[in-house]
């Protein structure tokens, strides 16, 4: 369900970019905030009642929610791609070692790395982050140790949705258009990256993301463009089968 929350972020970003194209920072902050709140609301009304239900129920709900959000966006913005303002024009470039690099890409990399470092610090250093980790390991034990489960899970959903929102803005900035069903593929790839890096390992997930991206771009460069997606999912299946803990993963506490 974490992954599916990202789905909405990608699509939701359309709205914010359309209206608030003044300042990059304002846009990103607003997107993250709005989607974070949306994530919390979804958690509150769709997932929390099912927390003790059989495991099929929240999964099915997650799929339902992803379709609801996708279709709301489709109805609001239409089925065709929506143009987003490229706030930093692609023509602004600089030369580095013979490569021509647009400034917007530099901005994206800085932003992405910044968010990753921030997330890493948050999860590892703060009290809430520790609560999240302990809840992931053993919810019951965490509760017994005085962790407010509801607050922790809500915070997790806020973070996840907010980061997805940031990713959506970045997508718009780089490609200049957004489509309502972007998030579906992106969510799958995000999950692949997270699994590749090892679930619960932020650095691993980030590296996994880069590896996946590298795979896709390489496949495209060798003329197998249309096979890129199939390749990504093959990677996912292979990793899950042979190394379910991920490339850099540590054993998780939920192993019985």
């Amino acid at each position: 369900m974490y992954t599916l929350t990202r789905v909405f972020g990608q699509t939701g970003a359309v709205e914010d970019l359309g209206y608030l194209a003044f300042l990059l920072i304002v846009t990103i902050a607003a997107t993250m905030l709005i989607l974070g709140v949306l994530g919390v609301l979804i958690e509150r009304f769709a997932y929390r009642p099912l927390r003790n239900a059989p495991r099929l129920a929240p999964l099915i709900t997650a799929i339902g929610i992803s379709f609801i959000l996708q279709n709301i966006i489709q109805i609001l913005f239409g089925p065709s791609p929506v143009n987003t303002p490229q706030l930093i024009a692609l023509s602004h470039r600089f030369e580095l070692l013979g490569a021509s690099i647009p400034y917007v890409d530099v901005f994206i990399i800085v932003l992405a790395v910044g968010l990753m470092v921030g997330l890493q610090q948050f999860v590892n250093r703060t009290k809430l982050g520790r609560a999240m980790r302990s809840t992931a390991q053993d919810r019951e034990a965490a509760q017994l140790m005085g962790v407010d489960i509801n607050r922790t899970i809500a915070a997790t959903f806020f973070l996840a949705a907010a980061l997805a929102g940031a990713a959506g803005v970045i997508q718009g900035l780089h490609f200049g258009n957004i489509k309502f069903d972007l998030g579906f593929q992106a969510g799958l790839k995000a999950f692949t990256a997270a699994v590749l890096g090892g679930i619960g390992n932020i650095t691993g997930a980030a590296l996994g993301g880069f590896v996946i991206g590298f795979f896709e771009v390489t496949a495209a460069a060798f003329g197998f463009n249309q096979w890129g997606q199939a390749l990504v999912f093959t990677v996912l299946i292979v990793v899950l089968i042979f190394r379910p803990a991920g490339l850099f993963g540590q054993q998780l506490g939920e192993r019985a």
Binding site: A46, P49, L50, A53, P54, A57, P58, I60, T61, I63, G64, I65, S66, F67, I68, Q70, N71, I72, Q74, I75
Partner: peptide, 20 residues
């Protein structure tokens, strides 16, 4: 017809919450 999947989505969530 555009609302078809929206309706399915709502139906899935509602079913899981109210009448699994």
């Amino acid at each position: 017809i555009n609302y078809q999947f929206l309706i399915y989505g709502i139906a899935l969530v509602a079913m899981m919450l109210l009448r699994p």
